[in-house]
Design a protein around this nucleic acid. Structure first.
Lengths: 223, 223
DNA sequence: ACCTGAACACCGTTCAAGT
DNA sequence: ACCTGAACACCGTTCAAGT
């Protein structure tokens, strides 16, 4: 009953939104934001650029769908943690790592109106705030603050990833920034000069979590 | 001694980086991000697109310079306030309003590596934290958290401005979001549904300041 | 219904040629 | 030194024509 082995000219699976989106994610991951073009995508899918438009309305929908797919994967699984604070940290770190793996997504998230992907994050943060017994009147502001902070870091991460593609490691990069900062005019930048040294022992993820904790402290200190 | 009145063919001021940047800001403000093209800019400056490249290396530098100009204007003047908290609030609101007036800048700031414009914000936030007597080891994280939060809100504001250019007012827009949220699946989005009503009495600026206060509370609660 | 790929209307950027 | 504007190498998107 089995069909015979065919020549190497493997038959092409039919085009589908799913295949298009996952090819887009691959392209974004390997060649970066500017590498995602309809022509490159079409070549990868062994078709013409026009074909893609049958399944997707345009480039911005495509970028949105790619982001959505990655966020969904990052948010897979239930929220768990010894405390609600831990659950928020786990959620935030999950997103942080996803953005680290897919830097193009940081820029995309930061410029996406609080639509589908981030709404799920908002919801899950909110539930943990309810568990923390944050008063109802304060829940919205608390959840928004956490979300906006996460989005801000996401944008910065994306910007950094874009700016030091010069083959520098993150440590080398931070080192060079630290040097620049410590050479700033002491009259204009006393504070920045003062904290420059701290950059050399800087860990992005630890720093990110430090901000989350600061906000969580602010949220609970009010009660 | 005065030169005679000339024909209406007014003599063109020579091109300069300054004139180019201010024409770019004007174009961005009136036609939006996608309206800034070298051809449109050249027409406005009564020259050819190539001329611009003599004064500016390319589009990304131009966008950076435009952002820099607006931020500089927004940050003009000293930090003042009855308390360091007030000074931080004033600083943050100044930026918020500038972004509100120039929505394209939100996207730009969110994707700018912490370079020149935001470094000045970082510095000024930091000085207020010193005034608050935040322990030195905590200053960097505290300043970064405030800055990242501001950048996150900036990005969201820009995204919102882009998405509801359909001639809806902000209130109408919030109303429609509130309706969407309150119709979400109660099993999947209990929290979001629950806070949906709050959107109708939502004031972006008040909400923004609420987040700043939350973070400031977190910063001072640690001491 | 779905795919093809040439064609359209743009871009940013370069560069020989001018003043 | 500074400006001009045609030309190059791309884009996203459309659409008649095919299967």
């Amino acid at each position: 009953m089995a069909t015979r082995a065919r020549r190497t000219e493997r038959r092409q699976e039919p085009l589908s939104r799913e295949r298009i989106v996952s090819a887009a994610v691959e392209l974004l991951d390997t060649v970066g934001e500017s590498g995602l073009t309809f022509r490159a995508l079409a070549e990868r899918l062994a078709t013409g650029p026009g074909a893609i438009y049958w399944h997707v309305t345009g480039k911005s929908e495509l970028l949105g769908a790619a982001t959505d797919a990655v966020v969904t994967e990052a948010l897979a699984g239930e929220d768990t943690g010894a405390t609600p604070q831990d659950a928020v940290r786990a959620l935030a770190v999950g997103l942080f790592d996803a953005i680290d793996d897919h830097p193009w997504m940081g820029a995309q998230l930061a410029r996406t109106p609080a639509g589908s992907p981030m709404l799920r994050v908002f919801e899950r943060i909110g539930r943990q705030l309810q568990a923390l017994e944050v008063p109802e009147a304060a829940q919205f502001t608390a959840a928004s603050t956490l979300l906006n902070y996460i989005l801000g870091v996401a944008g910065q991460n994306a910007a950094n990833a874009r700016s030091h593609h010069t083959g520098m490691s993150r440590t080398e990069f931070l080192d060079s920034v630290a040097t620049t900062w410590s050479e700033l005019d002491p009259d204009q930048y006393p504070f920045t000069r003062n904290v420059a040294g701290r950059l050399r022992e800087h860990d992005d993820r630890v720093e990110f979590l430090g901000g989350i904790d600061l906000i969580l402290t602010g949220i609970t200190a009010r009660q």
